[in-house]
Nucleic acid binder design. Structure first.
Length: 445
RNA sequence: GGAGAGAUGGCAGAGUGGUCGAAUGCAUCGGUUUUGAAAACCGACGUAGGGGCAACCUUACCGGGGGUUCGAAUCCCUCUCUCUCCGCCA
């Protein structure tokens, strides 16, 4: 949610900003008008209420005198009658106001964040800006296999059985595959907690509508989420642990000097992938459930862009240690997510696709989520609370990292060399190979 | 799953229909006093919306929502959460 001043004096500025994304002049005009009628209604209703409050006091006094003064009793009765009419008027006015506020809320919650001035203006991913590359695209002397072929060959991923119980877009990791996924999770969490200063969290994986609204997934993107009812209670499966991590501090005032907060969590992530039919239908790239290690920062406003750069570096470090080639993109205005003012994507090299694919997305949301979720801090001990800035980033998407390792570290026999940093999480095993018909083991490559 | 109790300002804790936005204590901040500190004393001390250049005025808020009433922290309905006891359970 944006500062309400945009809907009063900042209408032109707001339109300019939103045009960099996908437009929204009409929406802005509507909101500006609602903002105006809202003010007018408040003014009128408040005047009526002030009058009622004053007269009610008089009635109280008159009633106190009524025993000894019959005239006072009569006067009180008259005033009660008059106020009954005023009460009706107030009720009608409040109802009008309620409708206006409802619409106003509904619309403002659907307005995305404004791009930062450093963000290139563009319509689609074609206009993203490549900031840097690390490593060289892996060159293999043979025709690289896809992770799907490798995974099935090694019997470490089983799409068929996953489909049997859950349908398309689900995966089942087994044996060394499950072990590698777990090793990656642990490696990432260890790195971010011991080297980068993040606090590890295990959050709920289901959250309320309010929490989803706080980080901006709702109300606009409900169709992208899985919703459940537990004991008649509405809950959403998290599409990323950004949601619970950021909402940890909703409706809180963080004491002076406590920021910044760095949080990290591993979680499964659930996405309906509505509208993505036909894209990445095979493999681990696009699933209804995937694993991710998330990074979230809650910081003071003047720090947030600096903190974004650091967060990107924290995510990059994972790829560097895994020796996976990648590039960093600065997303253009049209390709950014709803809540972000600025986003960097990390893309890892995938030999079978001969291209870079997204493996992390790091965004500054400035005070957009903080305003929705009311996350505030005190700049100084006695000072008035201010909205904090929130950032989030993947550190990294675990399934896609798994894919990148299989594809970049394969040999011509379909064996996988395990990056050095993971050895300690895999009992020292340097690689995967297949032995026998139904087995997979950790072994020498 | 069953039975019961509760939710009031940063905290503790009064208040059961009318000058209650809310006593009192603690904490916090300013001041007086003191060589300094403590103590004592005096004063200040919520949030949000609207109006106004401003002083200031006004509205709303006693877990959330709804209702009764001229008037609700107080009465009624409902939801959520917390606690205690019993049962079940990883």
């Amino acid at each position: 949610m944006l500062d309400s001043r945009y809907f009063q004096e900042g209408v032109e500025e707001l339109k300019m900003g939103l045009r960099k994304r996908s437009g929204g002049d009409e929406l802005v005009a509507q909101v500006a008008q609602l903002s105006q009628s809202r003010k007018e209604l408040i003014l009128a209703a408040d005047a009526l209420k002030a009058n009622r409050n004053a007269v009610s006091q008089e009635i109280a006094k008159l009633k106190a005198q009524a025993k000894s003064n019959p005239q006072a009793a009569q006067e009180a009765d008259q005033k009660v009658l008059a106020m009954r009419a005023v009460g009706e008027e107030i009720k009608a006015m409040d109802e009008k106001l309620r409708l206006v506020e409802e619409q106003y809320q509904a619309l403002t919650l659907r307005i995305p964040n404004l791009p930062h001035s450093s963000v290139p203006v563009g319509k689609s991913s074609d206009e993203n800006f490549e900031v840097r590359r690390w490593g060289k695209p892996t060159e293999l002397s043979f025709d690289p296999k896809s992770h799907v072929d490798l995974g099935e060959h090694l019997k470490i991923i089983d799409f068929e059985r996953a489909g049997k119980m859950s349908g398309a877009r689900f995966a089942l990791y087994r044996g060394a595959g499950a072990r590698l996924e777990r090793a990656l999770i642990q490696f990432m969490l260890d790195l971010h907690t011991s080297e980068h200063g993040y606090q590890e969290v295990i959050p709920p994986f289901m959250v309320s509508r309010d929490a989803m609204t706080g980080t901006g997934q709702l109300p606009k993107f409900e169709e992208d989420l899985f919703k459940t009812h537990v004991a008649d209670r509405e809950l959403f499966l998290i599409p990323t642990s950004e949601v619970p991590l950021t909402n940890m501090y909703r409706e809180e005032i963080i004491e002076a000097g406590a920021l910044p907060y760095y949080l990290t969590a591993y979680s499964p992530c659930f996405r309906s992938e509505a509208g993505s039919y036909g894209k990445d239908t095979r493999g681990l790239i696009r699933l209804h459930q995937f694993q991710k290690v998330e990074l979230v920062k809650i910081v003071e406003p003047d720090q947030s862009y600096e903190e974004l750069e650091k967060m990107v570096q924290n995510a990059e470090k994972v790829l560097q240690l895994l020796e996976l080639p990648y590039r960093v993109l600065l997303l253009c205005s049209g390709d950014m997510g709803f809540s972000a003012t600025k986003t960097y994507d990390l893309e890892v090299w995938l030999p079978s696709q001969n291209t870079y694919r997204e493996i992390s997305s790091c965004s500054n949301c400035e005070d957009f989520q903080a305003r929705r979720a009311q996350i505030r801090y005190r700049p100084e001990p006695q000072a008035k609370p201010k909205l904090a800035h929130t950032l989030n980033g993947s550190g990294l998407a675990v399934g896609r990292t798994f894919v990148a390792i299989l594809e970049n570290c394969q040999d011509q026999n379909g064996n996988i060399r395990i990056p050095r940093v993971l050895h300690r999480y895999l009992e020292g095993a340097p690689g995967f190979t297949r032995r026998g018909d139904d087995l997979y083991i950790l072994a020498q490559v």
